[in-house]
Design a protein around this nucleic acid. Structure first.
Lengths: 215, 215
DNA sequence: TGCGAGAGCATTGTTAACAATTTTGTTGGC
DNA sequence: GCCAACAAAATTGTTAACAATGCTCTCGCA
């Protein structure tokens, strides 16, 4: 954790990253003077950054009691997945309407890499590629409002993102579902793309529900 | 505009209201010392509040150039409507699964009032009831994540909310669509409820698109 | 007239100190 | 040993002053 001099935006991004990557753990107290020392900014800056992160759902602040990293319960994680389903289906629809050839090529490239990961059993890389593919679809949709909603949702639930792919039989199913989504987008068929994305994420939701109750 | 002493939260809500109700107009500069004088808080408080409002999409801040009320273009308003369609369809689905009898009674009551408004040509009251009904459905869904997304979307687009109902023939259509949504929820049919809500808001989107191009 | 340099003003950004609050630790009585 | 009352420490909340930045308007010059 470096001690460089940062402006508010950089400080915000840094802190955000620390929460997302787990450097700062859920429920961990965020003490202003600590962060001041770690980030090399004034306390006022830290305060506005914490306020922003609260608005984004990554931090909880209580008056006179300071801030902590928000803990997202499995129940909330499921809600987030459900909301993601709604938003990403919309994005898939728009991607089918607006995707450019180079964007389609990129999606297909990601799919190919994902296939290779499955064959080699490399689920960690698969998960990263999964994220990249979803992002590629969101970008192709050119729908900033939906993309923005999705981004805030995603940052809240990273902690749970690895879970579902570990379910037995899930990797192969997941790959097939992603392929269907990309094919529908490539065919510029908005209804099919929306439906395929909905089917995919509903599958993820269902898997997550089973994992959750099985804990 | 009172000059009372407020804490951060109250200050945030006050400023938010001023933006939503148009007391502060789109693109209007938000000068920290002005707000300090009007709200009776320190500049630091104003600053964190502005940061929060930016994160919420109501304000735009540029480094060293201050904050202004974010102007939502008609194009963005359409995007917001599209995103609302996705979220509210989800909420309608959950409302169908989870609505309690008293909540259903409330929805029917609102529908009856809406019908009366249409008959009397009172579109202003109709619009308010419309908002109330959508909120009642969101509450019945018990889906905090989706509700939170919807709330931020709603606050950004209030400026455009009256427009669509003014289109010729819209009021009657709108009432029929709302009735269908409530009936599906009352029947505890999630698929029908989701579909009905989607149909309703797609109609709103389509009307808005026409109004927009007709400007 | 048109236009760049520079002074002055308005506003934002940053820092430090102080006040208020909560939390922690300690003492004394039972 | 346990609990209440109190004191001390840690932390957050607030304020004021100062620094830096961007904007505006004038002045000098072609």
């Amino acid at each position: 954790m470096g001690t460089q001099l940062l402006n508010e935006q950089a400080c915000y991004e840094r802190l955000r990253d620390w929460i997302i990557d787990g450097t700062l753990q859920p429920n961990e107290r965020l003490i202003e003077l600590d962060l001041v020392a770690r980030l090399g900014v004034g306390r006022a800056t830290i305060r506005t950054v914490l306020a922003r992160l609260e608005q984004e759902g990554l931090v909880v602040r209580e008056p006179n009691r300071g801030a902590r990293v928000r803990f997202v319960s499995p129940e909330e994680a499921l809600e987030i997945l459900e909301a993601r389903t709604a938003i990403e289906s919309l994005l898939a629809r728009f991607a089918a309407l607006r995707a450019q050839p180079d964007e389609l090529a990129q999606m297909r490239g990601l799919l190919a890499q994902m296939r290779a990961c499955i064959e080699q059993g490399d689920l960690v890389s698969y998960s990263a590629l999964n994220t990249a593919l979803h992002r590629a679809i969101a970008d192709a949709a050119r729908h900033r409002t939906a993309a923005r909603l999705l981004e805030t949702l995603g940052s809240q639930s990273v902690r749970y993102q690895y879970r579902t792919i570990l379910a037995p039989g899930r990797p192969a199913t997941s790959l097939a579902e992603h392929t269907a989504v990309v094919e529908a987008i490539a065919a510029h068929d908005p209804d099919a793309a929306e439906q395929a994305m909905r089917a995919h994420l509903s599958g993820v939701c269902e898997t997550f529900r089973r994992l959750k109750s099985g804990l």
